[in-house]
Design a protein around this nucleic acid. Structure first.
Lengths: 230, 230, 230, 230
DNA sequence: GATGAATGAGTATTCATTCAT
DNA sequence: CATGAATGAATACTCATTCAT
């Protein structure tokens, strides 16, 4: 057993080493691509940051383009998971609507303000012309799905009579716009870190406006206003 | 007089030639930078697109960085002028509020959806790390000033009792968010041209939501809803 | 007369202006060529140092090569005149031989150590391969003629029985070698300015050695040794 | 053992290949720098002459300046070794003084007249202003040390009563001057190859003059004169 | 599979030279 | 004639990619 164990252990360690290296390269690649842009990013720099030799990068990914796509895909999936988790906090069973929207909005903005999310969006914007398929990966696989998920939840709330809208997708887009618009301006495209209090204020204002527009009657709006003060 | 005219005409033609070339270079530079990104953009390509020799580019602008900054600055100024003109359509003397907001929002979104505006924002996002001062040029000199101007007009409407808000800047940010959020998603970062009808729908929805939240009483909201149908 | 004077004066002033500019360019060219080397020297820099526009340089000299040759020729002539003046201090009528040699040697070394002479030799060495004809200008027109002139004078001294040599040219070469060899080493190729006292010492030692070898009898050698002490 | 041998052999071949390439580049660089001057020399040309790709040059030396310094240093060391070997032929045990000086002088001049030595001096003169540290490498590390070594040997001869001088360094400088002065003029800065007979004549004349000046009595001088005839 | 060395294609920048004024 | 502007050719240096070990 020890012999077999040793061998399989060695093999496992080797596989683990390979996988670790693969992830190290992907992380380094994303970091360098985001920091320098695709053209400016050197494979040298990526290899150095990953702690491997340049040729190893090519052994794993073949060429620079593939590396970009894989790195973006990996980080897009991470972002998608985080955002969906945030959306799922919104249920029709849950308690008071304003508080729940505040909670969801806050977590969505935290995803949005994550350093790596800013990097992902900047990278996407930067390389749109040269790599249009990145748009499908990021916008299609992530952003749209998050909006759809949010729309689903809003639709269930509307069905339950707790929201007054017939176009749940538009409502979801507008809720996002109310959250993201102010933040994009104030954080100067992710350059400045917003203090948590300001973030909560933005969320509160968004929820307040959203409820005034979409709550079945005026009562909720006032409650939301109170939630914002808290 | 004709002699003097001839001379000054010749001199003017010379100066005109220089100025024309300068503008040709700036336009070509902006186009190529936006299409390829700073690092990927070749000065060769810029010169070719401008119809001048590469060295002429260097005679005028010294180096690639300066060329980028000048091109961005020039186009930022153009965008600023257009946006301010749009905002100025919002007066406290004007007619029905919903119709006016619809008009302003539509023109603002037209500015926003201009191909060169998308290019400017993408370029800014792409080169933020390498040229942080571009942020001051674009965000500080343009976006913020437009929001401030919009806030000014909203504040006057609030003073006139036609809007119900105490934080005009926040209201302006939210109005922008309601306009821009849906558009950014639907046009896939400017990749897809939105049909005019869809654009008007987005504006109508934004105005409707905005008025429900900020109109002094429910009457306006209903009017806005009707405006949206029209 | 005043009219003609004015006109010719104007013409003269114009011509003077042209000539002045020509000399300014030649001086600037020599300075820049010597400082930077032919390839590295920019016509821009020369024009700037001469205080004229770049195109003016081309109006006067046609191209960079011509400019180099003219500048070198001009300064070679200057150096030739200085060196010949030094050699002519050596006469067969003059007083004590050692003192005269000391005087000639000192003035020759002063020519040799002139900043512009170092520059001329460095420039010649640098551009030998690309412009072999400079060698004829500098070596043939200057250095050789100085050595010949010195040989002439030494020959007359030998005829007068005051020197003991049959090959005056060789004697002249050796005298030069005794002067120049130590100086070239000590001044580090003209980088370091030799103090006047050290210069005189070198001359004294050269004269002393020269006389010991070439004086008809030992008496002169001793006198030269005394001259060196003084 | 054969396996190990194979491996080390392969490794050695690899290392040898690198070293060979390094030397090929250094030689090519020196040749091209000497032929064209630093500014004019293209790294392309150097790489081509070395038979490697341009990037390989940069992999080995980083930039053009470093390449120049390394090439000069390498060839300066070579020249130093040759010159010191020549000086060491001068011993106080050896036979007749005139013959020994003739031998040393001849070998020193052969070093001096080596094509690469001329190239080294020309290159030094050419690039003095831009790379003043080359002076330390060539003058300080080579020329001065050779003169010092020669002075050492002359001093031992003086101690042994075979030379009459109290300043061995000056004597060494003058001996060099007597050798080099005539040669520099006759070979036209290394442009013309001196025939061996003329070289020997120059050495003979130098030794003759030197001994007349520094031999303890007249006897040696006459012997040297005879040596020159031989 | 991981690495160091080698390479060829590409790019920003400079500069001698010309032309219109 | 003196000039400012324009240009084409040349060059140092970089980098993605491949190959031998």
């Amino acid at each position: 057993m020890s012999g077999a164990g040793t061998r399989s252990g060695a093999a496992a360690a080797g596989a683990r080493g390979r996988i670790d290296k693969r992830w190290a390269i992907l992380d380094a690649a994303f970091a360098v691509f985001a920091r320098e842009g695709y053209a400016q990013a050197g494979v040298d720099a990526i290899a150095a940051e990953a702690g491997v030799a340049k040729a190893t990068v090519y052994n794993h990914f073949g060429d620079k383009e593939t590396l970009l796509r894989q790195a973006v895909t990996a980080h897009a999936e991470r972002a998608l998971a985080q955002n969906l988790a945030a959306v799922e906090r919104l249920t029709d069973r849950g308690g008071e609507l304003g508080a729940m929207l505040q909670d969801v909005g806050y977590h969505l903005l935290q995803c949005y303000c994550d350093e790596r999310s800013w990097a992902l969006r900047r990278l996407l914007a930067a390389e749109l012309h040269q790599f249009p398929d990145l748009l499908d990966i990021v916008q299609g696989q992530v952003a749209d799905r998050v909006t759809e998920a949010l729309a689903d939840r809003l639709a269930r709330l509307a069905l339950a009579g707790r929201l007054n809208t017939t176009d749940a997708l538009l409502a979801a887009e507008q809720f996002s716009g109310l959250l993201v618009g102010p933040v994009e301006k104030r954080s100067r495209l992710g350059t400045r870190q917003l203090p948590d209090a300001e973030l909560r204020d933005v969320v509160g204002a968004a929820v307040c406006t959203f409820l005034r527009a979409f709550a079945p009657d005026g009562a909720h709006a006032r409650q939301a206003g109170q939630a914002r003060q808290a």
